[in-house]
């Protein structure tokens, strides 16, 4: 299958005071379209950094990242923002819902960046909330939802624009076992039923089991399978 993500010779360092801390060292890999990839590794191994680079919210020091045919490293900040709005759905560990907006309004947020009409946006939001099983909670604010429900709303927000790629950073890290299972089942369904390409960072081996490909990172280097 044609790769949807192509990472080539990517390196990234952070500076703390005057010390350079290498995070990723000459990483290269590909992810075929429709795959469910789990990135695993100990804390500080660089997996979240790699996820951020693929999602276009961070930039590598060296190397190229091509996602869905676009060299995202070459994009300027403004174009990169538009690219993210179109191609990437984000799922965060702590859900990152906007507390002053209802579930409906949170899911609608990414759609405000499209040219859809209000009626079309409503259809998209309702579809996304139906997929995650929370259509009846769309008028609720995040604080009126459980952790698992919040994460499902976050997933609805991630899929509402029908993005090319879903990136999930420890999506079950803040959930109890039952809620975590629900979320993982939902991600699996999105991958199998809706053919979404998913890149997930996780510490949890049970979560990684749902993925088709598991890649391990250690000290900024991708381990051989």
């Amino acid at each position: 299958m044609e790769p949807i993500i192509r990472v080539q010779d990517v390196s990234k360092s952070y500076w703390r005071d005057s010390f350079e801390i290498p995070v990723l060292n000459n990483i290269s890999f590909e992810v075929p379209s429709g795959e469910f990839l789990a990135l695993m590794g100990p804390s500080g191994s660089g997996k979240t950094t790699l996820l951020n680079l693929i999602a276009g919210i961070d930039r590598p020091d060296r190397g190229t990242i091509n996602v869905a045919g676009t060299d995202i490293v070459a994009l300027n900040e403004s174009r990169l923002a538009s690219w993210r709005a179109t191609h990437v759905g984000f799922i965060f560990q702590f859900y990152n819902l906007i507390p002053v907006l209802t579930a409906y309004e949170n899911v609608e947020l990414p759609l405000l960046l499209t040219s859809l009409s209000k009626r079309e946006r409503r259809e998209h939001v309702e579809t996304a909330l139906t997929v995650v099983g929370l259509k009846d909670r769309m008028r609720h604010y995040p604080k009126q939802l459980s952790g698992g429900q919040e994460q499902r709303v976050a997933i609805a927000r991630a899929i509402t624009t029908d993005p090319t790629l879903l990136v999930a950073d420890e999506p079950t890290g803040d959930l109890d076992k039952h809620s975590a299972d629900e979320i993982l089942t939902l991600l699996e369904r999105l991958n199998l039923e809706f053919k979404k390409t998913i890149v997930m960072v996780t510490h949890d081996p049970r979560a990684a089991e749902k993925a088709h490909i598991i890649r391990h990172l250690d000290k900024g280097e991708l381990q051989q399978n």
Binding site: A55, I57, E77, S78, A81, S82, R84, A85, T86, F90, F92, F94, N96, I98, P99, L109, P110, L113, R157
Partner: peptide, 14 residues
């Protein structure tokens, strides 16, 4: 701060 980060990640511009 997190909300701003989230909005920016979703594609809202500076």
């Amino acid at each position: 701060t997190v909300e701003v980060g989230t909005l920016r990640a979703l594609g809202f511009r500076r």
